Amino acid sequence: MTETSDATSTGRDAFDVVLGEWHVSNRKRVDMLDQDSDEWVEFRSRGVHRPLPGRAGNLETYETYEMPGVGEFHGLALRLYDPAEDIWRIWWSSSLTPGKLDPPLEGRFDAGRGTFVTDDVIAGRSIRVRFVWSDLGVDRASWEQAFSRDEGQTWDTNWVMNMTRAEG
Rank of each mutant, 00 (worst) to 15 (best):
T2A: 04
E3V: 05
T4W: 03
T4H: 10
D6R: 13
R12H: 00
V24M: 12
R27A: 05
D36T: 12
W40Q: 11
V41M: 15
E42D: 07
S45W: 04
L52C: 03
R55F: 00
E60M: 08
E60V: 02
E63I: 06
E63L: 12
M67G: 04
P68H: 00
G71A: 06
L76E: 03
L78H: 03
L78R: 05
L78V: 11
R79L: 06
D82N: 14
P83A: 03
A84K: 13
R89P: 02
W91V: 01
S94G: 10
S95C: 00
T97N: 04
L101Q: 05
L105I: 02
L105V: 04
E106T: 15
G107C: 06
A111N: 13
G112M: 03
G114W: 10
G114E: 02
F116M: 09
V117Y: 07
V121N: 08
I122L: 15
R125D: 07
R125A: 12
S126M: 09
S126Q: 12
I127L: 11
V129R: 04
R130C: 03
V132K: 08
V132W: 07
S134Q: 08
L136K: 02
V138H: 09
V138R: 11
F147V: 05
S148T: 12
E151F: 11
W155I: 04
T157N: 07
W159S: 10
W159Q: 10
V160P: 10
V160H: 14
G168S: 14
